[in-house]
Design a protein around this nucleic acid. Structure first.
Length: 507
RNA sequence: GGUCCAUUCGUCUAGUGGUUAGGACGUCAGGUUUUCAUCCUGGUAACAGGGGUUCGAUUCCCCUAUGGACUACCA
């Protein structure tokens, strides 16, 4: 297998934002190529003019870039087989459809869409499916049933036509898939697929085979939805006399719950993104990037959805994925997408980030809130709360009390902890804190605990109240660390304010 | 309806003709912690069903069920 140069392609249609299933397909192609030192190609399959969406090409390239999937040959990168956009290659396909016709493996068909529609409806009413193939083609309007003169006349008159593949009758087509093994299909169950459309564009089937051949693709790794057309593609290669690449059909990504494949609606309903990046056009949609996922976590999560290394390792850098990836460890059945596990991956990557990296990411958020801490100060705050967060955006909720005095006090905690003795206790505490010689976490803790030891109070009572007045709630890291970073003046102010606000009758 | 593909804890999955069927996420229970979270420990939970083949099947074969894809001049 490694004799041949490994060349794979990711070939999306620019019909909208790429969804995470598509990113996974791209990722598997990329990992496979890089594992063997091969080439990863991005080819845009835009032969359907009607479904073309402005901005989709950009979106696809930006998504791959964000995910760290580097394209070797493609629209932006160029390459020896350019152009890499099918709409820029139309003349090429024409040549090959002509070749198929001259070989007798394809034919012109003049049937109108209305006529085909009528036949489909008719079949449907009998509970059948109309099949333009070996049993019906001879009763249709095409170059098999028309005389050569008629055909030439119609072509000369510029009449609309399509070119169909002439699927052989009753032939066992054997083919093989790297994930699913060997399969056999009888050609009589297949239809005469349109290869060339009346608008002068090839269909996916033709363009795909021609380009994969011309671009010297060695392995086609694509979604399972293409498995039913694999026999057709195999036949096409045979008709052209070309050696077919090896195929691998990836199982689909399924909804987290319920039936069917993952869709945009699931994301909306269950509150997780199904797209890598924000999609600003038409119906807008948020992306993993905007939700605060790290691209490394996103990629790691996708890689493990349908593939596993056969070991118990779960955290992989891109380099490790490249090293470990192999097609035969890709599963056969569809995988339900689990948003919880996606979060877990991000948590793991978040915890691996250095304080400095997190400062750089979090500083803009803090600035946005109107605060300008030094990087050192912010770094100390982050190091205190880091383990409690999974996303950069969580950090504000974990550090807000460093910047802002409590505006209210959690009623639940007040009810449970604040009683008639509390104001006096807090006043005494205030004096202790005010008298502390050096305002460090360690010293403060020592001073406060010594005072408590010599008083009738118990530690839990005092410290919980102290926290309540500092934070406004029962949350946050080590209390004395909070106090040190908050500073003497602000700490005393919060104590005074708290006593006054919680005991209006006593003040 | 037809063609093809698939089926191990709730989820992602490992695994073998003879295993206490392993891990992770989730969940539950303890522990640590002055709070919350983290963290640690432990528990819960699976071979879709029925026939074969076999001394023995979760593993191999067949059938059924269920799920999925495709069935366009879309990809």
């Amino acid at each position: 297998m490694t004799e041949k140069r490994i060349r794979v392609r990711f070939a999306p249609s620019p019909t909208g934002p790429l969804h995470i299933g598509g990113v996974r397909t791209a990722l598997y192609n990329y990992l496979f190529a890089k594992h063997y030192g091969g080439t990863f190609i991005l080819r845009i399959e835009d032969t359907d003019q009607a479904r073309y969406v402005e901005g989709a090409e950009e979106y696809i390239m930006n998504s791959l870039e964000w995910a760290g999937i580097k394209v070797d040959e493609g629209l932006r990168e160029g390459g020896p087989f350019a152009p890499y956009r099918q709409s820029d290659r139309t003349e090429i396909y024409h040549h090959y459809s002509d070749e198929l016709i001259s070989r007798g493996d394809a034919y012109y068909a003049f049937d109108t869409p209305e006529e085909l529609d009528r036949l489909r409806k008719e079949s449907e009413s009998r509970g059948e499916t109309f099949n333009y193939g070996c049993i019906t083609r001879m009763s249709m309007c095409n170059s098999l049933t028309l005389t050569a003169e008629e055909v030439n006349a119609r072509l000369a008159a510029n009449e609309h036509y399509v070119i169909r593949y002439r699927m052989p009758e009753n032939e066992e087509i054997g083919f093989s898939d790297m994930i699913r093994g060997d399969m056999v299909v009888n050609s009589s169950t297949l239809d005469d697929k349109v290869l060339y459309k009346s608008d002068g564009m090839p269909t996916y089937h033709l363009a795909n085979i021609v380009d994969d051949h011309l671009m010297e693709i060695s392995h086609v790794i694509r979604g399972e939805e293409w498995l039913p057309s694999l026999p057709l593609h195999v036949m096409l290669y045979r008709s052209f006399g070309w050696e077919a690449p090896l195929f691998a059909h990836l199982p689909l990504l399924l909804k987290p719950t319920g039936k069917g494949k993952l869709s945009k609606r699931d994301g909306d309903k269950m509150g997780f993104p199904v797209f890598p990046l924000y999609w600003p056009y038409g119906e807008t949609a948020t992306g993993y990037r905007e939700e605060g996922y790290f691209p490394e976590a996103f990629v790691n999560m996708l890689a493990l959805l349908g593939w596993n290394p056969g070991t118990e390792q779960e955290i992989f850098s891109m380099e490790e994925l490249i090293e470990a990836f192999s097609i035969d460890r890709v599963g056969k059945s569809g995988s339900r997408f689990d948003p919880e596990k996606a979060k877990w991956f991000n948590t793991r990557y978040f915890q691996m980030k250095s304080d400095d990296e997190l400062v750089a990411l979090f500083m803009p958020v803090v600035n946005e809130k109107g605060f300008k801490p030094s990087p050192v100060t912010l770094g100390r705050m982050i190091s205190l709360v880091k383990e409690r967060a999974a996303f950069v955006k969580d950090l504000w909720h974990e550090t807000d009390f460093f910047f802002v005095a409590p505006e209210s006090y959690d009623p639940e905690v007040v009810r449970k902890r604040w009683n008639a003795d509390s104001p006096l206790q807090m006043k005494e505490l205030l004096d202790v804190v005010a008298g502390a010689e050096s305002f460090t976490s360690e010293n403060l803790e020592k001073a406060v605990k010594e005072w408590i030891a010599g008083s009738p109070y118990n530690t839990g009572t005092i410290l919980n109240l102290f926290r309540l007045l500092m934070v406004g709630a029962s949350r946050g890291p080590h209390l004395f660390d909070i106090i040190e970073l908050t500073g003497r003046d602000e700490t005393l102010r919060r104590l005074e304010n708290g006593i006054r606000r919680l005991s209006p009758s006593l003040s």
